[in-house]
Design a protein around this nucleic acid. Structure first.
Lengths: 225, 225
DNA sequence: CGGCAGATTGACCCTCATCAATCAAGGTGG
DNA sequence: CCACCTTGATTGATGAGGGTCAATCTGCCG
């Protein structure tokens, strides 16, 4: 999964932007609200949630410090889903009006915005690959690996971190039920791949975790040969 | 599912562009190829395919006449997957270099490009909702409804059309096996929702097809109440 | 301390994948 | 024009993976 909206703060900062604190559980923006800004996450983390007409809810991503959120609103006049803080967080709100105008005069900024949008497309496509072609164990492994990489990219430890979201939210992202998420985390622990204690994750063997993806899939091996 | 890249030809046309014919089964572009252009589909249809390192293949979308394809390459220097013609087709190749430069002088074009990218994000998020929260029958129903809407938007019949892709390709998009796709289409026919004959689809009752989504899901009804 | 949200674990069952046989439709070459 | 082959679709039988229901357990916050 790509790391959308990463490292763009310097460029975005030129459009100004005001700090804002969001407490755990609060909405950064909501479905249908007037689109007016992008948000650079300075501290904390968020989940992005898509809501369908018939009451279905789908977590479309988790976003941590250093990433940008709110891109989906650009096309329409309103945000297409909710963004909720998973912990007490802080963002810089970047008015899109100004960003848009500035981009017209700054080719580098224009290109940076294109890139952020394209990266988000990439990120979602790889999630589609996960949802469309992986079994439960593989999904969890892919999730943990991706999170680990992003934590490292942000200067945190890559092999020991806190999950800021519930099992249910992880399940929603991955198309699994919370019980399945819980069971598989336990199984990974029994197999010595990770250590779990509630929200705390320690990755014991990253190579082993990687090898989960593709195991039990003899066909692919044969095809590759 | 949103209808990404629709109706943008007029604006895009200002960047020039050359016609190109692509025969059924031929690649419009391939994974890793130098990114240089977007493609407006003038006639025919394509599938976009994502390939993972371990040999997995995931269809990320089908695109028909009037839509734009190739957006995923914008961020990086290369295309992130393959685009394959599902039938003999024709596209207008729009060099991105020129588009990019023109956008800097044309706010309307810049905004149109932002919108196309954001629409694609939307489209993929709704597909994530399908993949993450729907059962097989619901996925197929959502697929047919979406296709029907897009056909109508392009001036074709909304209740009678040809599937240009195989059952296996539909399955790949929806995270199902080809046998499941086949079985469910047969079931829909038995129930009088549609008529199928190979690639030919006739939607007999759109309301009934819509009601497939959400049925067997008593919980949601209760929650909604 | 009590209450509650979240997590774990077990038992059961259903949907969908898998394996396999058959059928239909095109394309090709004789 | 027909026999042959290939590709795609249908249908059946069977079983596994993960959903569902339910009982506990844990940690946290008031």
């Amino acid at each position: 999964m790509a790391d959308a909206g990463a490292g763009m703060e310097p460029l975005l900062a030129r459009a100004g932007g005001t700090r804002r604190r969001v407490r755990r559980g609060e909405y950064l923006y909501r479905l249908g609200a007037q689109f007016h800004a992008l948000f650079a996450i300075r501290a904390g983390s968020f989940k992005a949630v898509l809501l369908s007409e018939d009451g279905r809810e789908q977590v479309t991503g988790f976003h941590i410090s250093g990433e940008v959120i709110g891109l989906d609103g650009i096309g329409s006049d309103t945000y297409a889903g909710d963004a909720v803080a998973l912990e007490d967080s802080e963002v810089t709100e970047i008015p899109f009006e100004q960003l848009d105008a500035l981009a017209a005069r700054e080719p580098a900024l224009q290109r940076a915005l294109f890139r952020m949008l394209a990266d988000e497309i990439q990120r979602e496509r790889s999630l589609m690959l996960v949802l469309g072609s992986m079994r439960a164990e593989e999904r969890l492994a892919a999730f943990l690996i991706n999170l680990s990489q992003r934590m490292r990219a942000r200067g945190f430890s890559a092999h020991r971190f806190l999950l800021r979201m519930t099992r249910e939210e992880i399940g929603s992202l991955l198309g699994l039920k919370l019980e399945t998420v819980s069971r598989i985390l336990s199984r990974f622990q029994d197999e010595g791949l990770i250590r779990v204690r509630n929200r705390e994750i320690e990755i014991v063997s990253m190579p082993a975790l990687r090898s989960v993806i593709g195991r039990n899939e003899l066909r692919r091996e044969r095809e590759a040969a």
